[in-house]
C-alpha cells in the first residue's frame, strides 16, 4: 500500500501559508504541548506532551477513562481544548481563528462505534467527504472511493447499505472513509472494541498494512498484542497524563512505573496479552 503523504494531498497544501520554518515532511507530524481538557469539574487531560514523527505509529494504552479518546477527539478538534497547543505538520491547529473544517480534512479519525451514515450506501459514505469537503467532481470522488474500497477488499459491497455489513466490514468501510480524504494523520479510537472477537483480525490486518505503507497514526487501543507488533512507541495514559512511554518491547516487558505494571498485570490476567 502506498503512503498517502502530503505530496498527494488533494487540498493543494492549503496549510503552506502558516508553515514557516518547518514544512511538511521536515518536522514532526504532530506536536502536542501541555494539553489540558476538562468536562465541567472533571479534568480529563492534565497536561499531555506528545510528539509524533512522520510515519510513526504511536499507541495509547490505559484504563477506560484515562483520557485516550478525549485526547484523540481534541487532536481532531471535535473537542475544544482548555490549555496547551496542538501542531500538525508545522501548523498550530489550536490557534484562534483557524478554520476547523480545513484542519479536519487533513486529520482522519475512526471511531469505536464506526459511525457510518446508515442512510447512505457504502460508496456514498466514502465519497461524501471528498465530494463535499474537498469539492471533488462526483466521478473523481467515486473513482477514489472505489480505489480504497478495493484496497480494503469491499469493492463488491459499494452499493450495499451499512446495516447489511458485518461489524468488521463496517469498521473497514469507516477506515476507507477516513482514508479517502488522504489525511496527513490518522487517529484510531479503540476501533476494535465494539467488534466480535472473530472480526477483530481483519480490521487489525488493515491497520497493519497502513502502518507498513507509512501512514502516521495515533491509536488508542486495548489490543496489547497488536500494540506490541505495530507501534513504534507506546504511551501509557493514567488519569489524564502520559505516565510512561517507550518502545513496545520495553513497555511490555519492563515497565518502570508501578501503575503501568498494575495495568499490564490486569491485562495479562484478562488474557489480553
Amino acid at each position: 500500500m502506498t503512503a498517502p503523504r502530503p505530496g498527494l494531498s488533494p487540498v493543494g497544501a492549503p496549510h503552506a501559508a502558516t508553515t514557516a520554518a518547518v514544512g511538511p515532511g521536515e518536522g514532526p507530524a504532530l506536536v502536542i504541548e501541555g494539553l489540558r481538557k476538562s468536562f465541567g469539574k472533571l479534568e480529563v487531560l492534565r497536561g499531555i506532551d506528545l510528539v509524533l514523527a512522520e510515519h510513526e505509529v504511536v499507541c495509547l494504552i490505559g484504563a477506560s477513562g484515562s483520557g485516550k479518546s478525549t485526547l484523540l477527539r481534541c487532536v481532531n478538534l471535535l473537542e475544544p481544548i482548555d490549555a496547551g497547543r496542538i501542531v500538525v505538520e508545522g501548523e498550530e491547529i489550536t490557534a484562534p481563528g483557524v478554520d476547523v473544517n480545513r484542519i479536519r480534512r487533513r486529520i482522519g479519525i475512526v471511531f469505536q462505534a464506526f459511525n457510518l451514515f446508515p442512510h447512505m450506501s457504502v460508496l456514498d459514505n466514502v465519497t461524501l467527504g471528498p465530494r463535499k469537503a474537498l469539492r471533488l467532481a462526483p466521478a473523481e470522488a467515486e473513482a477514489r472511493a472505489l480505489e480504497f474500497l478495493e484496497r480494503i477488499g469491499l469493492a463488491d459491497k459499494a452499493r450495499e447499505f451499512p446495516d447489511r455489513l458485518s461489524g468488521g466490514q463496517q469498521q473497514r468501510v469507516a477506515i476507507a472513509r477516513a482514508l479517502a480524504m488522504r489525511p496527513d494523520l490518522l487517529l484510531l479510537d479503540e476501533i476494535t472494541s465494539a467488534l466480535d472477537p472473530e472480526l477483530v483480525g481483519e480490521v487489525l490486518r488493515l491497520v497493519r498494512e497502513l502502518a507498513e505503507g507509512g501512514m502516521t497514526m495515533l491509536i488508542a487501543t486495548h489490543e496489547m498484542g497488536f500494540a506490541r507488533d505495530i507501534a513504534s512507541r507506546v504511551c501509557f495514559l493514567d488519569a489524564g497524563r502520559i505516565l510512561e512511554e517507550g518502545p513496545p518491547a520495553a513497555m511490555f516487558s519492563a515497565p518502570r512505573e508501578e501503575r503501568t505494571r498494575q495495568f499490564l498485570r490486569r491485562i495479562v490476567e484478562a488474557g489480553r496479552l
Partner: peptide, 13 residues
C-alpha cells in the same frame, strides 16, 4: 450526536 461528529470529522461544515 456521533453522526454529526463523524460528518464534521471529515471536514464538512
Amino acid at each position: 450526536p456521533s453522526q454529526e461528529a463523524a460528518a464534521r470529522s471529515l471536514g464538512l461544515t
